[in-house]
């Protein structure tokens, strides 16, 4: 297993709320399981942080079968936050992650403001959780899910409630399925968020013309993910980075170092790599190395020096 080479004097570290990340690269929730699934391919210690599968108060079975469809340059998928529930996460999944020197961020979802707060309280008492990513943007859950992410008042209420339930770093994840994403980013900042991540999947669909049914079975619609999402994600990250003072984490179709650098130049402090983890389980390591090489080539010693340096 190759370690990320400890290049001469390049500082890749990033601060998100109370978390100090050794580099700006982490997996997007739902594309990395609970970390262990990737242990044959990478050392989790090499990552900036680990974001685990979306977690709810009770276990969830998620969407119907036929959950994934490949589309040009990406996927249309509906997993529906299938997960083991917060208690089983703490008992069965978290102990494995404690052996690593990497901040663990738990992506949480709920059907009510109270449920978000309750999951947060439970996680805050568990040893080994550094941050909470609030999923108010899942396109594939009927109750809760995206509902909280498309109404700025609901966004504010959830973020405020989660902040009130924890001292951990709180990072809401925004949906692209809105007219003006900056309104939601501002609501998060006003509610006390420590950072903002964006974007989640765009709602999409596909029809089988022979059967006249959805190619995602009974799920009907799914989230568009993967490289084809990147231009939209980049535009939204750029918009948000201009209007908030808290760190922004860019997510959406990142597959190589250049992709990650685009987000950082647009103003992101860090990035999440999603769909491409499923294709290349070492892609995050390659991205970290590529960012370092880029800084060396440009003669820059600190990642912060290039952040937001996109010239518009």
């Amino acid at each position: 297993m190759n370690k990320v080479s400890s290049g001469a004097a390049v500082d890749l570290s990033v601060t998100l709320g109370k978390m100090k990340l050794k580099n700006p690269v982490m997996p997007a929730s739902g594309t990395f399981g609970y970390g262990r699934e990737f242990a044959d391919f990478i050392n989790l210690d090499d990552l900036g942080a680990v974001i685990v599968k979306g977690t709810t108060l009770r276990p969830r079975l998620g969407s119907f079968q036929h959950r994934l469809l490949e589309i040009p340059g990406g996927s249309l998928c509906s997993i529906g936050i299938q997960n083991v529930g917060v208690d089983s996460f703490i008992a069965d999944k978290l102990p494995y992650l404690r052996q690593f020197n990497v901040p663990v961020i738990v992506n949480i979802a709920g059907e009510s403001v109270e449920e978000f707060a309750r999951v947060t309280e439970i996680l805050s008492k568990a040893e080994g959780v550094a941050g909470i990513e609030i999923n108010i943007s899942c396109p594939n859950v009927k109750k809760g899910g995206m509902h909280f992410g498309v109404d700025p008042d609901a966004t504010f209420a959830v973020v405020r409630a989660v902040k009130g339930a924890t001292d951990l770093t709180v990072m809401p994840k925004l949906t692209p399925n809105v007219t003006d994403v900056t309104v939601f980013a501002r609501a998060c900042e006003e509610a006390g968020a420590d950072a903002i991540s964006l974007i989640n999947g765009l709602v999409g669909m596909a029809i089988d013309v022979d059967s006249r049914r959805s190619k995602l079975g009974k799920n009907l619609t799914g989230g568009v993910t993967g490289p084809c999402l990147k231009p939209i994600a980049l535009r939204m990250v750029w918009q948000v980075a201009q209007v908030v003072g808290i760190p922004v984490v860019g997510v959406g179709g990142i597959a190589c170092p250049e992709d990650a650098l685009e987000f950082i130049l647009a103003g992101a402090s860090a990035v999440e790599v999603g769909t491409y983890n499923l294709v290349n389980p070492r892609v995050m390591i390659e991205i970290i190395e590529g960012i370092r090489d880029y800084l060396i080539k440009k003669g820059v010693s600190d990642l912060a020096a290039i952040r937001g340096s996109f010239e518009s």
Partner: peptide, 17 residues
């Protein structure tokens, strides 16, 4: 057979009832 995302148990795409 199912459409698979990762093949290693991470993405939960290939479920079967």
């Amino acid at each position: 057979e199912r459409n698979m995302g990762c093949g290693i148990g991470a993405c939960l795409s290939c479920v079967c009832r």
